[in-house]
Nucleic acid binder design. Structure first.
Lengths: 156, 156
DNA sequence: AGATTTCTTGCATTTTTATGCAAAATGAAA
DNA sequence: TTTCATTTTGCATAAAAATGCAAGAAATCT
């Protein structure tokens, strides 16, 4: 296989392209990406779109075009600093971890936690500015705190 | 050709089904419609969905299900036939039970649990695809697991 | 370093969705 | 009613998207 290209950057490019033009197929997207310097196959795009939670939605005429998930989960490009600010406070109660976030950001943080697929976290429930995380039974709080820090500032 | 069925009624039925179950394909929908007394082909459904502006949207896990064009509609209950799909995974931590569901269906599952009025379950909190169930203190997990199984598949 | 595991990716193929075309049913007009 | 246009539908097929598998690259471990 050839040298791998930077997936993160490609995903970023996809978001940009999808949000700026009406693409009707993954092939269309492939063409645009190719122009932008990210050659890849339909297979890859299918997977990328899934990961980005991008889906086709219908316009008035019934035609479908790709669109970003409307929660704006991915739209903003966050700096490392901004990312760290996504977690305001983390407290514990029993085997629950309570994560406070800026208003409206809870689901985004919950999403990252879920996707981290950590063995420490069994599941999450997100409100508007609070995420409840259920901890694996014998996980120590320090470990959990560290893990959440990792997750939140890691993903770019 | 056979006698035509009432298209309007079928479209109505489609709305109803789509808003209440997590359908992953037009074939799934076809099966449900058939049960409801509206036999037709995938071809017809493709056109109906277009006319109704129904599209597939992704949940947090990336999986797609059909959904009505977002007006005031949000998610709903689950499949009749694949009841086991309503609960993807049930795990425990302390006196909490964590129930994972298809994207968007947590609140409906939680609703069902609440309405079951079981002595084992004190209360629930639902996110998008996860339900937290607080257990009565000395309830054994096997008992709880069985109870949730009853509740979920019973209403199918 | 070498071994082992995890990630990415493409190919080939399947699965899912859309559509060109024709026929039957309905509606409208004369 | 007869004729003509419109709508609805299915069949066959094309188009689009998803996935099992394997291999190469990168990361991690010993």
């Amino acid at each position: 296989m050839q040298k791998r290209q930077d997936k993160k950057t490609r995903l970023q490019a996809i978001r940009l392209i999808v949000s700026s033009q009406a693409l009707e197929s993954q092939e269309d997207l492939q063409i645009e990406l190719d122009k932008a310097g990210f050659p890849c196959t339909q297979t890859t795009l299918s997977r990328d779109l899934k990961q980005l939670r991008i889906s086709k939605v219908r316009g008035r005429n019934g035609h479908s075009v790709y669109a970003l998930p409307r929660e704006g989960m991915f739209s903003p490009v966050l700096t490392r600093e901004e990312k760290d600010k996504r977690c305001w406070r983390v407290v514990f109660s029993g085997n629950l971890m309570v994560v406070h976030t800026p208003p409206g950001h809870a689901s985004m943080v919950a999403y990252d936690i879920d996707n981290a697929d950590s063995p420490y976290f069994l599941g999450t429930v997100a409100g508007d500015d609070t995420v409840l995380v259920v901890l694996q039974e014998d996980v120590e709080r320090e470990v959990a705190r560290e893990a959440i820090g990792e997750i939140v500032s890691q993903l770019a």
